[in-house]
Each structure stands twice: as C-alpha cells, then as structure tokens.
Design a protein around this nucleic acid. Structure first.
Lengths: 398, 398
DNA sequence: CTATGTTAGTCTAGTGGATAAACAAAGTTT
DNA sequence: AAACTTTGTTTATCCACTAGACTAACATAG
C-alpha cells in the first residue's frame, strides 16, 4: 500500500494498511488461523482478531471448520472469499473480442469469444455491450456482485482512459470509459492491451513471484507492459512501453510511425507476413496459423522464417534486459503460439549476446495464460481497485 | 515515504510520516510559519506544533525572527537548517577524481579535483582517502557533522555496493564500501555514475520538478540513470540502465560487450574519437576538447562529425522516449560540453521521428550541474538517508 | 487610546487504533 | 484428573491525531 500525494497520516491509514496486510496474508496463505496471521504479519493477536471480524462482516473472508491442533486448542481456519464478487474483463483484439467473468482470484467462471473482421467502432461497441450483458446475466449470486469492468485495447490509452489511437482498429479519440460508465454504472478501467497483459501475468500467471517483469505482447505489432518494483509503470501520460517503435536498425525500412528500423518491423506477426509474401506460399496459408502448420509439416523456408523472427525478437529482448535488468521477460500474444519455432534462435541470441551479469536471476518465458493475459489483466485491475477501496471505505464508515 | 516489506502500521509510522511531510514542506518552502504548514499539509495546528518542536530539538530546522503580519499576530518563521550536517560526494572518473562537501541542500562548501592517468586501483584508493580526509577536515562545526560518504564509479555496481566491473578503470569485484566503512565508520553508498547523476539532477538540478526523468550520461561510453515515479529504478540486481549496449544497428560493428551495433558505438565520446581518427586531425587535438576547439574555429569536417553524433544520440533518445514516456531527458557527462554542436541534429531527429503524442509534456535538456551531477548525486543519497533515518530514530526513542 | 477583530501558536479533552497482558475456551499430554 | 498448550477475546494502557478552547500578539476603526 502506498499513500497518495498530499495525504496525511492518521489512524484510518494505519487501520487500512494493517487490514490490507491481514487480507493479503489470508488471500495468499489460505487456510490460516488468526494466531498464525498475527505471528507472521507481526501484529498483535487482539488487533488481528478485530481486523478479521471486520473482514468477516464485509464477506471478504470466511471461516471454515476447525483445523488441526498443534498441542492445544484447535484453530479456526480463515479463507479468502474468492466468490465474494466477480470482475468482468474484455480484450478487444483486431479481429476478435474476448470477455471473461472471473472471481476475485482470477478464476474464470464464464468466457465468451467473438470473431469478426473489419468492423466499425459502432459495430464493435454493439458486440461489446452484448458480451458484457451476457456476462452480467451469468454472474452468480454473491455479496458484492460485479465489482467492475475492464477493457483492454490494442492502442494508445491516456491516464484518464481515453483511447487516443488504435491504428489497427482505425479508432481515434474514443472515450469508451464514459460510454460504459453511463451504461453500466460500475467502475470502468480502460487499458492498453500490453499493460493489461503484463498485469495479468503478474497477478495470475507466470510473473506471480517476481517484482520486475517485462511483458512483450507480440501480435500484429509489438507493445510492452512494464512491471517495475511490483507495480505497473505507465509513464507520464500513460504512453510507456512503445518498444515496438524502438529503433534496432537505424536508417533501414520506414515505419508508418514516422521512424525507421522499428523493432516491430522485424519481430512481429506483421514482419512474418511481410516476409512470407516473398516466399512461394498458398494464399490461404498466409496467416500465422497457416505458417505454423507449414512449419509443422517441415517447410524449411518457413522454419527459417520463424528462426529469423525469433532472432530479431531476441535483439529487442536483449535491449530490454540491458534497460531494465528484469527477473523475467514474458512473451505473449499471438506470436507466443509459435514458441516452438521461435525459442531456439531467441535463446541463442540472449545467451550469446546479453551481458553475462544480466543473465543471473533472469528467465525468459512464453505466456502462461495464453490468449487470456489481457482479459484477465483488466479484470485484475478492477479486483485490485475493489479490494483497496472497500477496505478504505469501511474504515471511514465506522 | 513508503513502508518497507513486512512492516506493520502503528503510531510510530504515522508520526514518522507526518514529520517527514512537515520537514519537506519547510525544506521546500522556507521561510514558512507553523500555521501555513498546518493548512497546506492538512494537519492540525497542534500536531504541527508538536512535530516542529521535535524537529527544532534535532536541529533540522530553526526559527528566524517574526514574519510579516497578515492582519493579526506575527508568525514565527521556520527554516530548514541546511547547515545541520554535511555530506561528502566523490565522483571517480576514468582520469579524474572529484570530491565535494555539500550542506544538506546540496550547496557546495568545498570542492577538490584531481587529474590522473592510468593509475592502479591501489593508487586511486590512496587519492580517494586523501580527498575524503581533506573534505572531513574542512567540514565546519555543526550539530550532526558529516552524515555520510557517497562514491560514484563508472561501472557496474550491485545492490550491496560491490563494484563488479569498471572496464575503463580495469576494476573487477572491488568492495570499496567495506573499505570505506572500516576506515571512516560512516554510512557509505557506492553507486553507478549514471544512477548518481540522475539522482543529482533530480534533487538539485534540471530535473527538480519532474517525476519521470531519464539521465543520459554520455562519456567514453553511455550509461543511463532512470528516475521513474520520482524514485531511482535500479532493476533486480542494480544493473538497469545499460542503454549504452542497446542495439540500434543490428548486425553492424562488434562491441566489446559481445553484442553488435550498440548505441555507445555511435553516440559517445568513444564514437567521436573513432571517427576522428579517420579524419586528418593533429594528434594533440584528438580529444573532446580538441574537437570542440576545431569546431569552434570552423572546421567543417568536425562540425559534421558532431552533427552525425547528435543524430545518433537522437536515435537512442527517441527509443528512450518510446520506452519510458518521460517528462524530461537530460544529457550529461562529457558530451554535454558540446551541446552547441549536438543539439540541432538531436532535436531534429526527435521532432521528426518521435511519435507525436510522446512529444507533449516532454523536454530535452543538457545537464545543469555540468561536471558535478554525479558527485552531487551520491552526496544526495547520503542526505536522503540521513533525513529519513534521523526522523525514524527519534520517533522510536521517545 | 480603546474596543474589536484577526491571525499565530499552545493547551486540553477526547478519539481511534495498537499493544501487552490477563482471561476464557478448547484442546493434548502425563 | 491434573497440568500444560495453543487459540482467540477482553481489558487496561499508550500514543498520536483532532477539535476546539485559550492565550498571545498584532491591525484597524472609531
């Protein structure tokens, strides 16, 4: 927990902080007794008892039966009530829309996926409403209901949730947040797809145990989400992580962004397609799935193409390592499907070219949540927000 | 103020936090009255009075005479006691050693600079001791004396203060921290030169008003210090900011780091020298100062060389902008001398090639502290540490 | 000069939340 | 059955903050 600017310190803050410590302890160590919480968190038994009672009243935790005795009275075990509320996460892709309804631990309760092509904003908005409505209806009865809606989009989102630009969707200056707030009257979070993916992996996926995680969303383009010191770094206006437009080949191919030699021109799905066009490949196999199947069937040219792409991916990731000295780099989004064909050249590039001291405490993984990183990530934003706000409010009410 | 991991919240924490708020308010708004502090910080008048008394006892602030009345009783003005203690900051360069003695506001009281060439570690250590001894003797009488010693080195420093590698000094695995702690029995901080420079600019220089500042230390090589969300980001083991070895020209010139096309091969002093060798330039003018003087006297080839270097500097800084979405990029260290010859091509590159939305709220500056960024930065680490610890200890003692 | 109003700073009583320690409850061990 | 252990609650105390009364020191209007 961190204090926001211009906030003073008083009893409310202390209680909020300790309550949050207790809740976290229970959440990540269920089942656990009051006594164990007290000794491990470092709070007094009485304090923990009182905070636990608050949390019970709020239905954020519950008591299960008595646990094993360790030579004395049997403890009452406490568990995080992951079904106290549900979160909706939507991933708007270039040609699909994925909606998930998750409990407070990120377990998926309902999932809905729609495919489309070349739709206008209005048409996508319609499908978005349908998806959300469907998920709302399928929410089980629970104390807090749906606690928020998060949406991840492949584009530039500022800190207020305005979508400034989503080039592959042809969107510009869209205030989806306001639209959804008005329609659903729930907390809404709009985030860039890579930031959301990073947050998803950090909370529910491969990045759970690390503080410095870089999530490389390699799809049509490349976006990067940065988890630094345990929290998402968004930059001054929310535009950080545009590593797709990092120059790795100065003076080479022009990018539509105005720059030259951008990383995503060499290491994304777009790059694969561009090079595949020059090969002799049937038209209906000229997409990522087609190329993967060709590689599977032993097409040397295509295997070589993936190998080359993995190598370029490695060049950029090597830069990432030098810049951030992370514990983990996770490769997600569409290119993660072709892990099998990318990983060798990628790893070779890193092992040979990264500075030796950077290679300690470093691991490079492909996404664990596969296609769901973004949707789960935006769902996680709402959950995080709900838990901290509900703790705060209750403190103030008493 | 942030709570360290595994720490619980209690009234000590509250007091420490508020005391820190009050001290900061006084520090950055001297002279100021108790009443103004109370209303601006948001604390009760009584609370502020009590905290101010503590701070007076600790000599961290002092009362000046009464201020102007605004229609009632005249206020007693409070000032930060910048002379309550002094900090020693040392910048060990490749061929110089700079020591400064500063007060708690970073004002330089004494300064000592030594030039040398090709010295062994032992010989440099000797000069380091001499410099520190000299600065210690010249410290004025004050309540807290010298509160710490900081040393900035051009190399890789891990989080424990071990110097793993300083290639241009030929150092490897040197535990300078232990040596100095034993000899001086004071808090010692060893930091990478770029991190220190960033911290210096953030605290005392051009970066004072910003939260996201990237400091590019362009000397023989390039190192980068990252101030993100107001604090220094050091990475998992302290190895962040190695942007000198970011690939900007894949497959091009080999770097001694094992990689190819590293930024510092094109945009550092080393790059200038490498290209100058190929020109027809007198041997005694083949250093940065010589090249600057040639440019001043109108040598077109050399002007062109700087122009080219500024352009490459721009390529890397454009990457930095895309990665971090910073408010400010500061170019420091030796190349900052030649601002005049670099800035045009650099700025042109940014204006033409950086994404338009990144250019809002962004400024690119050359170092304000000129040659002292690093020394002042390491001095600032000690000051920061002293102020937070002394506030904490006093709270615990009472 | 006096009366009144205003601002600065201190003091006092009250509050909220933490702690320590006593206590009650419910076990196990001898 | 007696003694010991462990869990969880209750009670008294402490500490830092707040609100508001109070004192001090000024300005201004009459």
């Amino acid at each position: 927990m961190k204090l926001s600017a211009n906030q003073t310190w008083n009893h409310h803050v202390v209680k909020k902080g300790n309550k949050s410590l207790v809740l976290d302890k229970i959440k990540y160590n269920s089942p656990i007794s009051r006594a164990t919480v007290a000794s491990e968190v470092g709070l007094n038994k009485g304090t923990v008892s009182s905070l636990v009672n608050d949390l019970l009243d709020e239905h954020l935790i519950y008591e299960s039966g008595p646990g094993e005795s360790s030579g004395g009275r049997r403890p009452v075990m406490l568990l995080f009530n992951e079904k106290a509320g549900y979160s909706i996460g939507i991933d708007i892709g270039v040609n699909y829309l994925l909606g998930v309804l998750t409990d407070l631990n990120g377990n998926i309760h309902t999932e809905k996926r729609i495919a489309f092509k070349n739709l206008s904003y209005e048409e996508i908005e319609l499908r978005l409403f349908e998806t959300i409505d469907f998920l709302l209806i399928s929410t089980p009865a629970c104390p807090h209901g749906v606690i928020g809606i998060g949406v991840g989009v492949p584009g530039i989102v500022d800190k207020d949730g305005n979508i400034l630009l989503a080039p592959n969707l042809n969107w510009r200056n869209i205030n989806l947040k306001e639209v959804l707030e008005e329609r659903y009257n729930l907390p809404i979070i709009i985030e860039n797809e890579a930031n959301a993916g990073a947050y998803g992996e950090k909370n529910f996926g491969a990045g759970k145990d690390f503080e410095n995680v870089i999530y490389v969303s390699a799809g049509i383009g490349i976006g990067v989400g940065l988890i630094l010191n345990g929290s998402l770094y968004k930059g001054t206006n929310g535009f950080s992580g545009e590593l797709g437009h990092m120059t790795i080949q100065a003076g080479d191919v022009k990018c539509r962004c105005g720059n030259e030699g951008c990383w995503e021109l060499y290491a994304s799905e777009q790059a694969l397609m561009r090079h595949a066009e020059q090969l002799d490949i049937p038209f209906d196999l000229q997409d990522l799935e087609g190329l993967v199947s060709l590689a599977e069937s032993g097409n040397e040219e295509v295997v070589q193409l993936f190998y080359q792409t993995g190598d370029y991916l490695g060049i950029g990731i090597n830069n990432i390592i030098n810049i951030f000295n992370p514990q983990q780099v996770i490769i997600g989004n569409r290119l993660a499907y072709s892990k099998k064909w990318l990983k060798d050249s990628l790893n070779k590039r890193i092992t040979n070219q990264a500075l030796w001291f950077q290679q300690n405490d470093l691991q490079i993984d492909f996404s664990e949540l596969s296609t769901r990183s973004t949707a789960l990530g935006v769902a996680a934003f709402s959950i995080e927000n709900f838990l901290s706000v509900s703790i705060q409010q209750d403190t103030l009410l008493e």
